[in-house]
């Protein structure tokens, strides 16, 4: 439709665009600029070229952060998607138990990450944690999972899966409910068993939904911070140092604006690349299925 006055559309968009540009577009540029300076917030900034990036890359520090973040995200995305899809298929039927399962699983998505992190920290506690106790009864050594460099990161990922599975389940449920029943019935009449129906009717139909869940959980898990800050502070032995926590450390503990900005730039570019790649793969697959 034609606007009544030429300035109308811009006046309507002005507050939104101004806020988005101020807080999301410009800061990316500012971070990229500041990543070439050495600045401790006390003395004036000094241009240092790519020194911040080189310092971060030295001793494989940056690589470790990227690797830990990728492992955490990989575990959370695969765990969340498989549990979410399996549970969606399971609870998509009438009955009280299924309604209860839907509600309780989804509730974790609504509760604060702080509450979830503290709760699991207590349950996994080496001394009095109930899960820790159960694991010890099964013959595990008497250390806390969170205190073990090998297990701390998978333990954080498990907490992430517990928190996000309800989200994936609800999105998959919406996808399942948009599947025409007639399609499944026609397949059954043609003699397709439950597995064949799932493989050739349900799965292709859920392709776009799965792509959506994969991308959103990837972005969410890539930004993980709360579980790290609350449960492990990046330890033990830096085993759980993920990107956002590393940025946070650089600016608030080391007072290094340059290194924090350099990390933020790498973090943002990796996130963009991963999300783009994932969308491409899923699009290609969705195309194949048709």
């Amino acid at each position: 439709m034609t606007p009544r006055a030429r300035w109308h559309p811009w006046a309507m968009l002005a507050p939104t665009l101004a806020l988005l540009v101020t807080f999301f577009v410009l800061p990316i540029g500012v971070a990229a600029y500041q990543s070439f300076f050495s600045w401790d917030l006390l003395t004036p900034p000094r241009f240092v070229g790519a020194a911040n990036y080189r310092a971060l890359a030295a001793h494989g520090h940056l690589f470790h952060i990227a690797l830990h973040t990728a492992v955490y995200s990989g575990l959370v995305v695969t765990g969340t998607m498989s549990a979410g899809l399996a549970l969606a298929l399971l609870v998509d039927r009438p009955g009280r138990v299924f309604a209860l399962a839907r509600t309780s699983i989804f509730s974790a998505y609504v509760v604060s990450w702080v509450a979830v992190a503290l709760l699991w920290m207590w349950m996994l506690d080496g001394n009095g944690g109930i899960v820790g106790g159960a694991l010890r009864a099964l013959g595990a050594p008497p250390t806390s999972l969170l205190g073990d460099p090998r297990w701390a990161l998978p333990a954080l990922a498990a907490v992430g899966v517990w928190k996000l599975t309800g989200y994936a389940m609800v999105v998959f449920l919406a996808g399942l409910r948009s599947l025409p029943r007639a399609l499944l019935e026609a397949a059954a009449l043609d003699g397709a068993g439950p597995w064949a129906r799932f493989r050739h009717v349900t799965m292709p139909h859920l392709g776009p939904t799965a792509a959506f869940v994969a991308t959103t959980t990837l972005v969410t898990s890539f930004q993980a911070f709360d579980v790290v800050r609350i449960m492990t502070q990046g330890g033990p032995a830096r085993a759980t140092e993920l990107f956002v926590y590393a940025i946070y450390e650089q600016i608030f503990l080391n007072l290094s604006v340059g290194k924090a900005s350099a990390l933020a730039v790498v973090f943002f570019l990796l996130l963009l690349a991963l999300a783009g790649l994932q969308l491409r793969v899923w699009r290609a697959r969705a195309g194949e299925a048709r």
């Binding site: 999301f24 577009v25 800061p27 990316i28 500012v30 971070a31 500041q34 990107f243 940025i247 924090a260």
Partner: peptide, 9 residues
């Protein structure tokens, strides 16, 4: 663009 990438500036 997540807020986690822009919070420093």
């Amino acid at each position: 663009v997540p807020a986690q990438a822009t919070f420093v500036p």
